[in-house]
C-alpha cells in the first residue's frame, strides 16, 4: 500500500505534463459544476424561502363569532406547515380600513353597519414548500363551514413549484454530464499511463505480482489527479464567490444575498476523488496473467 502510494506520487511527477493537463481539465469541469450548483443552490434557497412570504387569507362568514373564529385559529395553528396565524376581527378590519382611507374618509360616510368579514392571515413555514401539501391544506380550509373564501397566490405557488422542479432536474442533468466527463478524463489519463507502462507491468506479472499490486498505483494516481482537480475547483469557486460578494452594491443587491455552502467546497475534492477512483478502475479493466 505504502509502496503503491509512493509509486503513484513518483508517477504524478514523472508524467507531470499529462497529469497536469488532466488535473486542469478536471478542475475546469468541477469548477463549472460547482458554479452551476452554487447558482442552483441559491435559486433553490430563494424559492424555498418563498412560502414564508406566502400568505393565505381566510375570509370567514359574516356570522362567525370571535369565539368560533378562535376555535378555527387553534385548529389551523396545529398544522405543521403553519408558521404563524393572525385573526382580524370585523371591527379590527374596519378600523384598519378607516386608517388606510383617512385621507378619503368621505368614502365611508353613510356606512352604518360594518360591511367587512372577519379574516385569518396564515403564514407558512420556509421548509413547507411542496405544492401538494399546501394545496391539500387549502382544500381542508375550504371545507370548513366557518370559511367563506380562501385567497392565496395560486399562480405564484405554481410558478415557484415549476422553478423548484426545473432547478432539481437541471442540477441532476448538469451533474451527471459533468461527472461523466470528469470520470472520462480520469479514465483516459490512467489508460494512457497504463499503456506507457505496459512492458513494466508485464515484467511485474512474470515476477509474481498480484492484480492488486499492479492496479493500486494507478488507482492512487487516478484518485490523486481527481482530488487535486477538485481542490483547484474549490479554490476557484471560493475566489469567484468572494469576487461576486465584492461586486455587491446597491444597484446589484442580489449578489449580497449569495450563499456559498461549505459542503460544496468540501464536496468538490471528494467528487474528484470518487470520479478518479471510478475512472481509473474502469480504465484498468480486467488484468490477465
Amino acid at each position: 500500500m505504502n509502496y503503491s502510494f509512493k509509486i503513484a506520487i513518483k508517477s504524478l511527477w514523472h508524467e507531470r505534463w499529462i497529469n497536469l493537463l488532466s488535473i486542469l481539465s478536471i478542475a475546469v469541469g468541477l469548477f463549472i459544476l460547482g458554479f452551476v450548483i452554487l447558482v442552483l443552490y441559491n435559486v433553490e434557497t430563494l424559492t424555498r424561502g418563498a412560502p414564508e412570504k406566502f400568505t393565505v387569507t381566510l375570509f370567514l362568514k359574516k356570522d362567525v363569532t370571535d369565539s368560533k373564529a378562535k376555535g378555527l385559529l387553534r385548529k389551523i395553528k396545529k398544522n405543521e406547515i403553519v408558521k404563524s396565524v393572525k385573526y382580524i376581527s370585523k371591527t379590527e378590519a374596519f378600523e384598519e380600513l378607516k386608517q388606510s382611507l383617512k385621507d378619503a374618509a368621505y368614502i365611508l360616510e353613510g356606512i352604518d353597519e360594518n360591511p367587512l368579514f372577519p379574516s385569518i392571515e396564515i403564514k407558512l413555514k420556509e421548509k413547507s414548500f411542496d405544492k401538494d401539501t399546501i394545496e391539500k391544506f387549502i382544500a381542508s380550509l375550504k371545507k370548513d363551514k366557518r370559511v367563506d373564501e380562501v385567497i392565496y397566490g395560486q399562480q405564484l405557488l405554481g410558478t415557484i413549484h415549476e422553478i423548484y422542479k426545473s432547478v432539481k432536474i437541471l442540477t441532476i442533468i448538469v451533474g451527471l454530464l459533468f461527472c461523466t466527463a470528469i470520470a472520462f478524463v480520469c479514465y483516459s489519463t490512467v489508460k494512457i499511463l497504463f499503456y506507457r507502462k505496459k512492458e513494466e507491468i508485464e515484467v511485474y506479472k512474470l515476477l509474481g505480482a498480484t492484480k492488486g499490486f499492479i492496479r493500486s498505483p494507478f488507482i492512487f494516481e487516478g484518485i490523486l489527479v481527481g482530488m487535486l482537480g477538485g481542490i483547484l475547483a474549490s479554490a476557484g469557486n471560493l475566489v469567484l464567490f468572494n469576487l461576486l460578494k465584492g461586486m455587491s452594491n446597491p444597484s446589484v443587491p442580489l449578489l449580497k444575498g449569495v450563499i456559498l455552502p461549505e459542503e460544496l467546497i468540501l464536496s468538490l475534492p471528494l467528487a474528484g476523488l470518487l470520479l478518479g477512483l471510478v475512472g481509473s478502475t474502469i480504465a484498468l479493466g480486467k488484468i490477465k496473467y
Binding site: E199, E200, E202, V203, K205, L206, L207, G208, A209, T210, K288, Y289
Partner: peptide, 24 residues
C-alpha cells in the same frame, strides 16, 4: 486457479533471454 498464478510464479526465478530489466 487464476489467482494462484502469481504465488506459483514467486517459486520460480526466471532469467529472461532479453533480460527484461526496467530501464527507468
Amino acid at each position: 486457479k487464476e489467482k494462484a498464478v502469481p504465488y506459483l510464479r514467486r517459486n520460480i526465478g526466471v532469467v529472461f533471454q532479453d533480460f527484461k530489466l526496467l530501464n527507468n
